[in-house]
């Protein structure tokens, strides 16, 4: 038996979220007195997994898996879980992991809980805490099947360093043409900017910025901080910013370390989607904007004056702390 964890790569490099799910899997393994086994697909090096307590890694190298395929990746993970006799499978909540998880659940006849935020309670049954109602509540979900799949919310558990002896094993994916019913025709990825899902810091702009021509300072602030850019729903509906930047209950969830909201009022649907962020800063010229009730730090002021000053000061700060 073992705890299986899918540690994702991006261009052959393990992602930060991979180390978070590895840390979590190690903690679950310790709790149940089992080994933590990772699976990587076309990773250049898996050495770093030894910093997060992984005992064994199944390294899959397969050209057919060069592009993500939910079905083929789920098939690979199913085969790994079967070989290892895994009773718990841990995944991140990246777009790809969320895509393959339900397929894997059916394959393994496993109960699946997404958006999990804490270690499971395993005395007696197997219960996980997960967010529901878009962060407006939590629910304790009991997973009642023999095999269990956990989708761990981004940034909920953090990285836990833990040195281990890592055994590396080559693993055959055992995928067939049947797993490739969907063709990837093209991928359009912004490689010089961090995505909202992977970002430590997200800088977000709302209708208070008046128009798309004013996003220069948002982009610049994001660049200084190494942050992703996001926006409120009306901003994307009006076409000021791409839909991919829309965050909130009906957009993307944000669970970054730092979320900076500029000219965003803080409507309930917006707050729901971003409240999992650890620290929230609001810049708004209306001291009665609802966001001030949901944030950690606030500045009442005109964004067009505050943001350029903030950029200036952050540049100084970065220069002094480099």
């Amino acid at each position: 038996m073992s705890i299986l964890v899918y540690t994702e790569t991006e261009n052959g490099q393990l992602k930060k979220s991979a180390f978070e799910v590895a840390s979590y899997a190690k903690a679950v393994a310790d709790q149940l007195g089992e080994k933590a086994v990772a699976v990587t697909i076309n990773a250049e090096s898996t050495n770093e997994l030894a910093n997060y307590g992984i005992d064994k890694v199944l390294e899959v190298k397969n050209d057919k898996l060069a592009k993500f395929s939910a079905d083929a990746y789920a098939e690979t993970l199913k085969n790994a879980a079967k070989q290892e006799g895994s009773k718990v499978v841990v995944l991140s909540q990246s777009a790809n992991a969320k895509y393959l998880a339900p397929l894997l659940a059916v394959d393994l006849e496993a109960g699946y809980a997404s958006n999990v935020t804490e270690l499971p309670q395993t005395d007696g049954g197997f219960t996980v805490k997960r967010t529901a109602f878009t962060n407006k509540a939590f629910n304790q979900t009991s997973i009642d099947t023999d095999v269990k799949i956990i989708g761990l919310s981004n940034n909920a558990f953090g990285l836990k360093e833990n040195k281990s002896e890592l055994e590396k094993i080559e693993f055959e994916a055992q995928v067939s043409d049947e797993n490739f019913g969907i063709n990837v025709e093209s991928i359009d990825k912004n490689t010089d900017k961090v995505s909202i899902a992977d970002a430590e810091i997200v800088v977000s702009g709302g209708r208070g910025l008046k128009g798309p021509e004013n996003w220069g300072m948002i982009e610049e602030l994001a660049e200084v901080l190494g942050a992703a850019t996001a926006c409120s729903k009306p901003v994307s509906d009006m076409g000021w910013r791409p839909h991919a930047e829309h965050v909130g209950q009906t957009g993307k969830p944000v669970a970054s370390n730092l979320y900076i909201a500029i000219g965003i009022s803080g409507a309930i649907q917006h707050l729901a989607g971003v409240s999992a962020s650890k620290t929230k800063v609001v810049i708004n010229n209306d001291d009665e904007a609802p966001f001030f009730k949901a944030a950690d730090y606030g500045i009442v002021g005109d964004a067009f004056e505050v943001v350029p000053k903030l950029i200036e000061k952050l540049k100084e700060f970065k220069a002094n702390n480099a």
Binding site: F68, S94, I182, E185, D188, K189, N190, S195, D198, A244
Partner: peptide
């Protein structure tokens, strides 16, 4: 389909 940080164009039967 939306992916983290971009988009992917897919075809399917």
């Amino acid at each position: 389909r939306e992916i983290d940080g971009g988009k992917e164009t897919l075809t399917s039967s």
